[in-house]
């Protein structure tokens, strides 16, 4: 039954197969519930970032906004550092996926190694981001000096906070894996972690794209979104 059918049901009418209805409904497993919760949570995070993006694009059209890329002397004219950071996060994501696959096959040892690697790369990413912040501040692109910089720190900061929050959960799952709990539970937990991690990687790529555009591109995006 699709959602439309569900919502046009006439509940007062005698259901032709009442038993079928009773079987088709009913509480689902905790695992499904967790999965649903994660999906809703990702929707919330997406809204959070979409709103930041919207204000960012709007702000980029105000006078005095100096984007971080677009001219050779701008800090993000050279994106090598950013690519390097992307590499860390990608490796982390890949490692976590590997961990999940191994855990599904029941190879706990390999899974554990993959998870530890994933954590290591994630921490690397956060440190590299901090390094990036330090570099930029050192070059005079400090948090309050221009709205473009403020948005850079805000977005990467909020992204990093989500990653750190996720790390807590990942650490817990890894601990369970190490201690050797019920495998099915660990697999599900890893599955959720991996989903979250891939999401954060995707989010980072969007941030990367958005932060390194030229003023002209911002103008185009603003017009396309009706924010110009």
């Amino acid at each position: 039954m699709n959602i439309f059918q569900k919502l046009t049901e006439k509940p007062w009418e005698p259901s032709s197969d009442a038993m079928a209805a009773a079987v088709a409904t009913g509480p689902t497993s905790q695992i499904d519930a967790r999965k649903l919760m994660l999906n809703i949570f990702l929707a919330i995070v997406s809204v959070l970032f979409l709103l930041i993006f919207a204000t960012f694009i709007t702000h980029s059209q105000y006078p005095g906004f100096e984007s971080l890329a677009g001219e050779p002397w701008k800090p993000f004219a050279d994106t090598t550092n950013l690519w390097l950071n992307t590499l860390w996060l990608t490796l982390s994501s890949v490692a976590m996926h590997t961990g999940l696959v191994k855990a599904r096959r029941g190879i706990s040892g390999h899974a554990l190694i993959a998870m530890v690697l994933a954590i290591f790369f994630a921490v690397q990413f956060v440190l590299a981001q901090l390094w990036l912040w330090r570099d930029l501040s050192g070059m005079g692109y400090t948090l309050p000096s221009n709205p473009a910089n403020s948005y850079f720190y805000l977005m990467t900061g909020v992204h990093a906070l989500h990653l750190i929050g996720g790390l807590v959960v990942v650490l817990r799952s890894t601990f369970l894996l190490w201690r050797g709990g019920a495998l099915e539970r660990i697999q599900n937990s890893l599955k959720l972690c991996a989903t979250y991690w891939h999401y954060l990687l995707g989010l980072w790529l969007v941030l990367f794209f958005l932060l390194t555009r030229s003023p002209e591109t911002y103008r185009a995006i603003a017009i396309a979104c009706g924010l110009g």
Binding site: K6, P11, A22, T25, G26, P27, T28, A33, L36
Partner: peptide, 13 residues
Amino acid sequence: ILQARTHGMTLMR
């Protein structure tokens, strides 16, 4: 509400 409704509790009920 989405996952823990008891048996027979369709959305429209």
